[in-house]
Amino acid sequence: QDAKLCERHREKLHYYCEDDGKLLCVMCRESREHRPHTAVLMEK
């Protein structure tokens, strides 16, 4: 099964943002929008 990719950055989605309920890639996780949020690394 292929991992889902971030629509914005075309990177694999490794994080779940608990504040927004969205899946994030590393680039999104470090963005100004999500940096202050609680995001957890998803298990494989």
Score class of each variant (00 low, 15 high):
Gln1Met: 15
Gln1Gly: 11
Gln1Glu: 12
Gln1His: 03
Gln1Val: 11
Gln1Lys: 15
Gln1Thr: 15
Gln1Phe: 08
Gln1Ser: 11
Gln1Cys: 12
Gln1Arg: 10
Asp2Asn: 10
Asp2Trp: 02
Asp2Ala: 13
Asp2Val: 13
Asp2Leu: 10
Asp2Cys: 05
Asp2Ser: 13
Asp2Arg: 12
Asp2Gln: 14
Asp2Gly: 15
Ala3Gly: 14
Ala3Lys: 15
Ala3Glu: 15
Ala3Arg: 15
Ala3Asp: 11
Ala3Gln: 15
Ala3Pro: 15
Ala3Leu: 15
Ala3Ser: 15
Ala3Trp: 15
Lys4Ala: 07
Lys4Ile: 01
Lys4Ser: 11
Lys4Val: 09
Lys4Trp: 07
Lys4Gly: 12
Lys4Met: 11
Leu5Asn: 04
Leu5Asp: 02
Leu5Glu: 09
Leu5Pro: 03
Leu5Ser: 04
Leu5Thr: 10
Leu5Lys: 04
Leu5Val: 10
Leu5Ile: 04
Leu5Cys: 05
Leu5Met: 15
Leu5Tyr: 04
Cys6His: 06
Cys6Met: 00
Cys6Tyr: 06
Cys6Arg: 01
Cys6Gly: 00
Cys6Ser: 02
Cys6Asn: 01
Cys6Ala: 00
Cys6Phe: 01
Cys6Leu: 01
Glu7His: 07
Glu7Gly: 09
Glu7Val: 04
Glu7Asp: 09
Glu7Thr: 09
Glu7Ser: 05
Glu7Tyr: 14
Glu7Met: 03
Glu7Arg: 06
Arg8Met: 10
Arg8His: 15
Arg8Leu: 15
Arg8Lys: 14
Arg8Ala: 14
Arg8Cys: 06
Arg8Thr: 13
Arg8Gly: 08
Arg8Asp: 04
His9Glu: 03
His9Phe: 00
His9Cys: 01
His9Ala: 01
His9Thr: 02
His9Lys: 02
His9Val: 00
His9Leu: 00
His9Trp: 00
His9Arg: 01
His9Pro: 00
Arg10Asp: 10
Arg10Met: 12
Arg10Ile: 06
Arg10Glu: 09
Arg10Tyr: 10
Arg10Gln: 14
Arg10Gly: 13
Arg10Thr: 05
Arg10Asn: 14
Arg10His: 11
Glu11Gln: 10
Glu11Ala: 06
Glu11Arg: 08
Glu11Gly: 03
Glu11Asp: 01
Glu11Leu: 03
Glu11Phe: 06
Glu11Val: 02
Glu11Thr: 03
Glu11Ser: 07
Glu11Ile: 04
Glu11Cys: 03
Lys12Tyr: 09
Lys12Met: 04
Lys12Pro: 07
Lys12Gln: 02
Leu13Arg: 12
Leu13Gln: 08
Leu13Glu: 15
Leu13Thr: 12
Leu13Val: 13
Leu13Cys: 14
Leu13Ala: 15
Leu13Ser: 07
Leu13Met: 11
Leu13Trp: 08
Leu13His: 01
His14Glu: 12
His14Asn: 13
His14Thr: 14
His14Pro: 15
His14Trp: 10
His14Met: 14
His14Tyr: 15
His14Lys: 15
His14Gly: 12
His14Leu: 15
Tyr15Asn: 01
Tyr16Met: 05
Tyr16Glu: 07
Tyr16Gly: 05
Tyr16Arg: 12
Tyr16Val: 09
Tyr16Trp: 06
Cys17Ala: 08
Cys17Tyr: 05
Cys17His: 06
Cys17Leu: 01
Cys17Phe: 01
Cys17Gln: 05
Cys17Asn: 06
Glu18Ala: 08
Glu18Asp: 06
Glu18Leu: 07
Glu18Tyr: 07
Glu18Thr: 09
Glu18Cys: 10
Glu18Pro: 04
Glu18Asn: 11
Glu18Trp: 02
Asp19Ala: 11
Asp19Trp: 04
Asp19Thr: 14
Asp19Phe: 11
Asp19Tyr: 07
Asp19Lys: 07
Asp19Gly: 07
Asp19His: 06
Asp19Cys: 03
Asp19Leu: 03
Asp19Gln: 13
Asp20Met: 01
Asp20Gly: 04
Asp20Leu: 02
Asp20Cys: 15
Asp20Ala: 05
Asp20Pro: 02
Asp20Arg: 05
Asp20Gln: 08
Gly21Cys: 06
Gly21Lys: 13
Gly21Val: 01
Gly21Met: 01
Gly21His: 05
Gly21Asp: 04
Gly21Thr: 03
Gly21Leu: 00
Lys22Cys: 08
Lys22Phe: 01
Lys22His: 05
Lys22Pro: 02
Lys22Ala: 12
Lys22Ser: 08
Lys22Gly: 04
Lys22Leu: 09
Leu23Glu: 12
Leu23Asp: 09
Leu23Lys: 09
Leu23Gly: 07
Leu23Ser: 10
Leu23Tyr: 12
Leu23Pro: 05
Leu23Arg: 11
Leu23Phe: 13
Leu23Val: 07
Leu24Asp: 09
Leu24Ser: 05
Leu24Glu: 07
Leu24Trp: 05
Leu24Arg: 04
Leu24Ala: 07
Leu24Phe: 01
Leu24Met: 06
Leu24Thr: 04
Leu24Asn: 03
Leu24Lys: 06
Leu24His: 06
Leu24Val: 04
Cys25Ser: 00
Cys25Lys: 01
Cys25Val: 00
Cys25Pro: 02
Cys25Asn: 00
Cys25Gln: 01
Cys25Gly: 03
Cys25Glu: 01
Val26Gly: 13
Val26Asn: 09
Val26Phe: 07
Val26Ile: 13
Val26Thr: 13
Val26His: 15
Val26Gln: 14
Met27Ser: 12
Met27Pro: 02
Met27Ala: 09
Met27Tyr: 11
Met27Arg: 15
Met27Asn: 15
Met27Thr: 13
Met27Lys: 14
Met27Ile: 15
Cys28Phe: 00
Cys28Gly: 05
Cys28His: 01
Cys28Ala: 00
Cys28Lys: 02
Cys28Thr: 00
Cys28Ser: 01
Cys28Tyr: 00
Arg29His: 06
Arg29Trp: 02
Arg29Lys: 14
Arg29Gly: 04
Arg29Asn: 03
Arg29Phe: 04
Arg29Pro: 05
Arg29Glu: 09
Glu30Arg: 09
Glu30Asn: 11
Glu30Gly: 06
Glu30Cys: 01
Glu30Lys: 09
Glu30Gln: 10
Ser31Val: 03
Ser31Met: 07
Ser31Leu: 07
Ser31Tyr: 15
Ser31Lys: 02
Ser31Cys: 11
Ser31Gln: 08
Ser31Phe: 01
Ser31Asn: 14
Ser31Pro: 03
Ser31Gly: 11
Arg32Met: 12
Arg32Thr: 13
Arg32His: 13
Arg32Val: 13
Arg32Pro: 14
Arg32Gln: 12
Arg32Tyr: 12
Arg32Leu: 13
Arg32Trp: 09
Arg32Cys: 01
Arg32Ser: 14
Arg32Ala: 14
Arg32Asp: 15
Glu33Ile: 13
Glu33Arg: 04
Glu33Met: 03
Glu33Cys: 00
Glu33Lys: 08
Glu33Ser: 06
Glu33Asp: 05
Glu33Phe: 02
His34Ala: 05
His34Leu: 05
His34Cys: 01
His34Asn: 11
His34Arg: 04
His34Thr: 02
His34Pro: 04
Arg35Met: 08
Arg35Thr: 09
Arg35Pro: 05
Arg35Ile: 03
Arg35Gly: 09
Arg35Ser: 09
Arg35Val: 05
Arg35Leu: 07
Arg35Asp: 10
Arg35Tyr: 05
Arg35Cys: 01
Arg35Phe: 06
Pro36Ile: 03
Pro36Leu: 08
Pro36Phe: 06
Pro36Val: 08
His37Val: 01
His37Arg: 02
His37Thr: 04
His37Cys: 06
His37Phe: 01
His37Tyr: 01
His37Met: 00
His37Pro: 04
Thr38Glu: 08
Thr38Cys: 08
Thr38Lys: 13
Thr38Pro: 04
Thr38Met: 04
Thr38Tyr: 02
Thr38His: 13
Thr38Ile: 07
Thr38Trp: 00
Thr38Ser: 10
Ala39Thr: 14
Ala39Leu: 07
Ala39Gly: 04
Ala39Phe: 00
Ala39Ser: 11
Ala39Val: 14
Ala39Gln: 11
Ala39Glu: 09
Ala39Arg: 05
Leu41Asn: 13
Leu41Gly: 10
Leu41Asp: 11
Leu41Glu: 14
Leu41Ser: 07
Leu41Tyr: 02
Leu41Val: 12
Leu41His: 08
Leu41Gln: 13
Leu41Met: 11
Leu41Lys: 12
Met42Gly: 09
Met42His: 11
Met42Asn: 15
Met42Gln: 11
Met42Trp: 05
Met42Arg: 10
Met42Cys: 07
Met42Phe: 08
Glu43Asp: 11
Glu43His: 14
Glu43Phe: 02
Glu43Leu: 02
Glu43Gly: 09
Glu43Trp: 01
Glu43Arg: 08
Glu43Ala: 07
Lys44Leu: 05
Lys44Ile: 02
Lys44Trp: 03
Lys44Glu: 02
Lys44Asn: 15
Lys44Met: 04
Lys44Val: 06
Lys44His: 08
